[in-house]
Every structure is written in structure tokens, then in C-alpha cells.
């Protein structure tokens, strides 16, 4: 899968990254209606995902290759009779009608409760934009305190490509300024932060 960087970790400012900022990050993300789970292992993350799939009665899931094998998604989805699409053209065909998208994000920002997505790959963006439930997986140590620290990081790796901050679910206040969740993007954003490293660097 194409990435803006294959090694975001080395770009974090060493003084300004770590689990110390996780609590504030989680609080702010929850303030904007994101659901946040912090787990220790990939196995625990699997059960969180399985629970979401079950409770939302999902039938179709799209996921990036980056997240499929470390979390072994087929083993948890097959028993639930849920279809899983992970190939690029399948993702393009099915993302719009899928119930859930699962993808990795690179880091969290405590100041705003945002997660930062490396979206160079088209499949990454299809998965985090089209299905109504968006599950993003990150490492709980990859949290920076501020927007400034986020841009310290980004400016080291961003030559070309597509980088996004995602902050809670899609929303609008365009009618009578009434906050309404879920317009064109996902109506649910679930952040799963794992303490152990699941991706190879």
C-alpha cells in the first residue's frame, strides 16, 4: 500500500510524543463524539472490532491490507458471516455499500482529539470516507501534544501525497445551526489505540 512515509515513528519530535498525552487526546476525541478504546494487545483489539460488528449488525467490511493481517480480521469476521474486502478494486466496488471500514492511522493529537491519516493510498481514503462506521487503529504511544508538534512531524515526511486529520465523525450545522452527525462521511468514528506495536517498521 502506498504511503506518504513508511516510517512515521522516526519523524515524531522525541520530546513531544508518547502515552503521556493519551489521556488528553482521548478526552478531546470523546468530546467530539468519537469512541475511544485503549487496549494492550492485538487480540483485545480484535474483540473490540468483533463487538462493534456484532452490535451494529454489519454485513460488509472493507479494510486496508495494513490492518488485515496484524489483526487477523478474517478469523473474527468469518464466524460472524461478514464479508471482508481488502483488495483495491474490491474496496472501490464495495466501500460505498459497506457498513464498516477498518484502517490504520499514524498518530493522535492531544490538543484537538484528532487522528492523523496517511492517505496516499486510494484504498485508505475510500475506507475512511465512505462506510458509515469508521474504525481506525493506532498505537497508543503515538500521540503528540499539539498541532505544532503534529506539523513538526508532518513537515519531515510530507513531500507529496495526501494527509488528513480526522476529528470525530462527519458533522454539519448548516440547518438552523443544529449540530447533526453523519453527513457525507462516517456517522461513527471508533478509535482503537493498541499499546503493543502491530505494524512492522
Amino acid at each position: 500500500m502506498k504511503k506518504v512515509s513508511n516510517n512515521w515513528k522516526q519523524a515524531f519530535p522525541p520530546e513531544s510524543v508518547g502515552t503521556a498525552f493519551f489521556e488528553e487526546f482521548a478526552m478531546r476525541a470523546q468530546n467530539v463524539a468519537a469512541k475511544v478504546f485503549r487496549v494492550k494487545t492485538a487480540a483485545e483489539a480484535q474483540s473490540v472490532i468483533a463487538e462493534i460488528i456484532k452490535s451494529s449488525d454489519a454485513k460488509k467490511v472493507v479494510a486496508t491490507p495494513e490492518v488485515v493481517s496484524p489483526l487477523n480480521l478474517p478469523t473474527i469476521l468469518e464466524p460472524l458471516n461478514v464479508k471482508l474486502y481488502t483488495e483495491q478494486s474490491d474496496i472501490r466496488t464495495h466501500a460505498d455499500t459497506s457498513d464498516v471500514g477498518v484502517a490504520c492511522v499514524e498518530f493522535g493529537i492531544a490538543e484537538t482529539g484528532s487522528v492523523c491519516e496517511d492517505g496516499l493510498a486510494i484504498e485508505q481514503r475510500l475506507i475512511t470516507t465512505l462506510p458509515p462506521i469508521s474504525i481506525v487503529v493506532m498505537n497508543s504511544a503515538n500521540v503528540v501534544p499539539t498541532i505544532a508538534a503534529a506539523f513538526e512531524t508532518i513537515s519531515k515526511v510530507f513531500d507529496r501525497g495526501y494527509i488528513s486529520f480526522i476529528t470525530g465523525p462527519s458533522r454539519t450545522s448548516d440547518i438552523e445551526r443544529v449540530l447533526t452527525i453523519g453527513v457525507h462521511g462516517p456517522s461513527q468514528l471508533v478509535i482503537i489505540a493498541i499499546d503493543e506495536e502491530i505494524r512492522e517498521v
Binding site: V32, I109, S164, F165, T167, G168, S170
Partner: peptide
């Protein structure tokens, strides 16, 4: 504090 989406495309 931040909008739902901020994207930079290069």
C-alpha cells in the same frame, strides 16, 4: 478546536 476533516493534498 478542529473541524472534522483537514486534508492536505500534494
Amino acid at each position: 478546536l478542529m473541524t472534522s476533516y483537514m486534508s492536505m493534498i500534494s
